[in-house]
Each structure stands twice: as structure tokens, then as C-alpha cells.
Design a binder for these strands. Structure first.
Length: 313
RNA sequence: CGCGGGAUAGAGCAGUUGGCAGCUCGCCAGGCCCAUAACCUGGAGGUCGCCGGUUCGAGUCCGGCUCCCGCAA
């Protein structure tokens, strides 16, 4: 039985850890995850999803604020004897220093939610949808000292659906990764699988996202904005400012019509809220959420409000 | 006790210094048109979130409670 140490935090990591726990060839000796964080309107301290799963299976959990703490933790160090065979990182949220990478005998394996070397970085799924890629997938790779840079063990492709949001695609990719992870590790460890260097001439990077990234720039084309709305759903969300208040934009539709309005103009078309975007394109707001309100259709939002500029096609 | 918005017809909203509860949409019935996000006529639909107080009289003023949501983390 292979002794395995797991690093992971978010929802995306959960199916992977679950698959490894259920595989009889692996023994998950420890789970390292982020500390509990305040969540929700009243900042209730909430454990990361991976922790919840680990506790269910009575696996020792470590939540260091800094990884250095693990060096001093006796309970953690005692688990490392005998030395773990392999490590796995899925959406942990921190860069692992070299001394951590050196803990397992055979290094640490990472699951990344894109076909590397495309979309290296912390938000590959968002980037995939925002870029309008036709195909996405997961890459299982060996970690080296550079971010998402190590040699590839396996890639699994997944086709994008036209209405995919980041939430939906992430769920599919997590299942996909979880399905092939255990097998890939075993093949790597018994030598039937050779790591392949990435084609470093084709790399692209994605950035870490914040809510501010969700502010819509109407200079972009309607299609670009439509993809962004899906790419940021459910997090970090897209929004615009209107009358000094934020309006969350949850669903939009690219309209075939043209208009001579300046970019960013709000107007009505057949009773629906439209906005002029870049390069002559037009977007319809299908579902929005005003501050302090529940989500509602664009048509409902218009009713009872006079602030939307009225105009004829 | 982190900051803030809200609860009024099925939906979205208005309701002025307390004085008969309204608008837009939907729904039902009828009419009209080659056609439309159609249009015209009529109609139904409300314990104004809950409890208490002030008052001749409270959606509105006062106190308490419940629920929903935005920001921030």
C-alpha cells in the first residue's frame, strides 16, 4: 500500500481526495489544507470542504497558516515515518516550498484544470471560458519549483458546452480528474508512464481573480462580455454600476441587432434592457440582481424603475 | 453585536405633513388586426412580514421580533 500525503482546499479538490481514499492501493496518511476562514454575512468560521471530507474518514488534518509550521509540528513529523511514497496537490491555494516537495520519496503530483501549458496559474477554468476555448481538460503533472511548469503525466480533454459556467465546468473537470488520478499515479510509480516535458513555447498565464475583476467593460464586444459573465459565475461574479449602486449581472444574451448608440448606452428593445457594447454589438440583460434584492429577470428589473433610458429600435 | 438595503395583489415597484391602498406587467372575459414587446374594453386578485404601543384614525409614528438580500472578510 502506497503512503500518500494530500494537499488541497477547495471544492475542486474534494472528488480527487475522495477517489484516493477509496482506492485500496493508497493510504492517505495526512491532509494539509487552508485554515478555517470566516464566510458569509456574519463571518462564521467555516472549514474548507476538503477538511470536512478528511474528518469524515478520520484522516489527520493540518491547517498551517504558514507551511513552515509543519516543520515544527511533532504530530505531523511523526506521520512522515516511514516516509510517504507520494504527494498530491489539488487546489491547495499556496505554493509549496522545495522542502515540502522533498517530503515524499517520489515527489508531488498536481492536478491542474486546463490542458497545460495553456492557462498556467490560479484560475484556469475561468480563463478557459473567458477565452472562448472549445476544449478544456485536466492535466496531471509533476510539480517542480516553477508554477505549473513540471512534466506532464496525463491529460484528459473535456469539450465545453455553449452555456458552461465556471461552476458547471469545474464540477465536470473535477470528476474527470478524480477518475484518472489514482491510475495515473500508479502507472507513474511503477514506471509504465514517462513524464513528458511541457512545450514551453506555447504557455499562457491566467491571473488570480478578485471581485473587482468582475466589473464589466462595455468596450468589449457582446460575445466577450457574455463569456465573461459565464466565466465568473458563480465567483467572482460580474457587475455594473448604475445610479451609484452595483447591479450584479448574472445572465446575458448576445443580440443580433445593431444600434447607433454610443458604447455603454442603456436602451430598451421590445421592452427588454439592452446595452450597447464594443464594435457595434448589443447585449441583453436577462438576469440581474440589484443590491439588497433577489435575482430577477431584466424585464422585471425594468418595471417600476424609470432609470433605464427608453428608446426605439 | 463588521457596514448597508429590503418585506405593500402572482411579479417588479410607488405610497407625499398619519385621512377611502396605487402604478407597470401578468392573469381571466370579450373585442380588433395581414402583423407586433401588439392594441382597445371590462374583470378578478391585499390579514400592507409578525407582535405590541401612541391615536378618533397607522402601510405611514414608537418599541420588539422573524425572514430575504448587497458589501466586506
Amino acid at each position: 500500500m502506497l503512503r500518500l500525503i494530500f494537499f488541497g482546499t477547495s471544492e475542486f479538490a474534494v472528488p480527487h481526495l475522495d477517489a484516493l481514499i477509496k482506492d485500496k492501493d493508497f493510504h492517505v496518511i495526512a491532509v494539509v489544507t487552508q485554515p478555517d476562514k470566516p464566510v458569509g454575512r456574519h463571518a462564521v468560521n467555516t472549514p474548507p470542504p476538503v477538511k470536512t471530507l478528511a474528518i469524515k474518514y478520520r484522516i489527520p488534518v493540518f491547517q498551517p497558516i504558514k507551511l513552515l509550521e509543519l516543520k515544527e509540528s511533532e504530530s505531523f513529523q511523526s506521520l512522515l515515518d516511514p516516509r510517504p511514497d507520494v504527494g498530491v496537490v489539488v487546489a491547495y491555494g499556496k505554493i509549496l516550498p522545495q522542502w515540502v516537495l522533498d517530503i515524499p520519496k517520489n515527489g508531488i503530483i498536481n492536478v491542474h484544470a486546463s490542458i497545460l501549458p495553456r492557462h498556467r496559474g490560479p484560475s484556469p477554468i475561468h480563463a478557459t471560458i473567458a477565452a472562448g476555448d472549445q476544449v478544456s481538460g485536466v492535466s496531471i503533472m509533476l510539480i517542480d519549483e516553477k508554477m505549473d511548469h513540471g512534466p506532464i503525466l496525463a491529460t484528459v480533454e473535456e469539450e465545453l458546452l455553449p452555456n458552461d459556467t465556471v461552476g458547471e465546468l469545474q464540477t465536470r473537470l473535477a470528476d474527470l480528474g478524480a477518475k484518472s488520478l489514482a491510475e495515473t499515479i500508479k502507472e507513474y510509480l511503477n514506471g509504465t508512464l514517462t513524464p513528458k516535458e511541457q512545450d514551453h513555447s506555447k504557455i499562457s498565464y491566467c491571473k488570480i481573480l478578485t471581485r473587482e475583476n468582475g466589473k464589466i467593460d462595455w468596450n468589449q464586444t457582446a460575445s466577450e462580455i457574455e463569456r465573461l459573465v459565464r466565466a465568473y459565475d458563480p465567483w467572482p461574479g460580474t457587475w455594473m454600476e448604475i445610479e451609484g449602486k452595483r447591479l450584479k449581472i448574472q445572465k446575458v444574451r448576445v443580440c443580433p441587432n445593431d444600434s447607433s448608440y454610443p458604447i455603454g448606452t442603456r436602451f430598451l428593445w421590445k421592452g427588454r434592457p439592452n446595452i450597447k457594447c464594443g464594435q457595434g454589438t448589443v447585449l441583453e440583460l436577462e438576469v440581474v440582481q440589484p443590491e439588497g434584492k433577489k435575482p430577477m429577470s431584466g424585464v422585471e428589473y425594468i418595471r417600476g424603475r424609470g432609470e433605464w433610458l427608453s428608446a426605439i429600435t
